[in-house]
Amino acid sequence: MWKLTCANTVAMLRSKRLWTGAGLLLAYDLASYALSGLLRAGDRGLDSRIFEFMGIAALLVPVVTALFVNTDYHDGTIRSKLSVGHSRPAVYLANLTVCTFTGLFYFVLHLLAALPLGCIGGGALRMGAGELAIRLATSAGVLLSLTAVTVAVSMLMAHRAVTVVVIFMMALLLDGAALLENQLAQPPEVRDVVGTVEVVDEKGELDLRYVDREGRELKVSETAMAPNPLYISEPLRTGLCVFNDLLPGGQIFHLMGLTEREVPMWTVGLSALVTAMLSTALGLMLFRRKDLR
């Protein structure tokens, strides 16, 4: 498998898609800096710049992975590797290894670009070194999870349409995760009032007040809480939380801090590793039985 991995690495390094992806990533970092970092220098912490990579990685890494694996199918390389004596698991795992390294390469490239740009823009790290280290390790886990799912799909689907399938799969994963998190963020109770009044005072601060049907202002103590019909209760709640935490989309949202639910980073990392293992095991099992004619 070592020879396979070396061969795959050389093929990836020589391929245009790796460097095109790297160019797009650098262009994105520059554009992100130009649109936000320059206009509000120092407003954005460096932490958000580091982890915004996951947003673009959700598209970049699956596409490059799918193209790499599909080229192997198209050129007959996978059949050749099996013909010379490599086992199917070795071929699968070699592809997974190289694609994981590709994702990590892009992450390092992003750090090398985004950190200097963020510092120029006046940003600073807002989290401690320990927390940053945990988040970086979790990011690597989430990248592995993303790559494992994409490699599984790409190794099982030899058709050239795999890139389109992968893009739509990622769009569904991300949109689905956002929808689910919004639903899970619904509070168990809501204030039972007829109307609300938003008041912006002389200092520019927003204050929410409540009124009855006649427009008379109510004190908070005069209002009552009522059950929220949109609240998802147990046991469905736990099931959906676990489901969303196991999907790469949900893991990416947790990492980027876009969820209302507070989930420890080590849990996200663990979920990512579980996803990677499950998808690799399933992919290996199905690839063993795949007809490679």
Binding site: V194, G195, V197, V199, V200, G215
Partner: peptide, 13 residues
């Protein structure tokens, strides 16, 4: 210019 100005938004049922 919103300095010194209080804005009230009333939303009915």
């Amino acid at each position: 210019v919103t300095d010194g100005v209080e804005m009230v938004v009333t939303v009915d049922d």
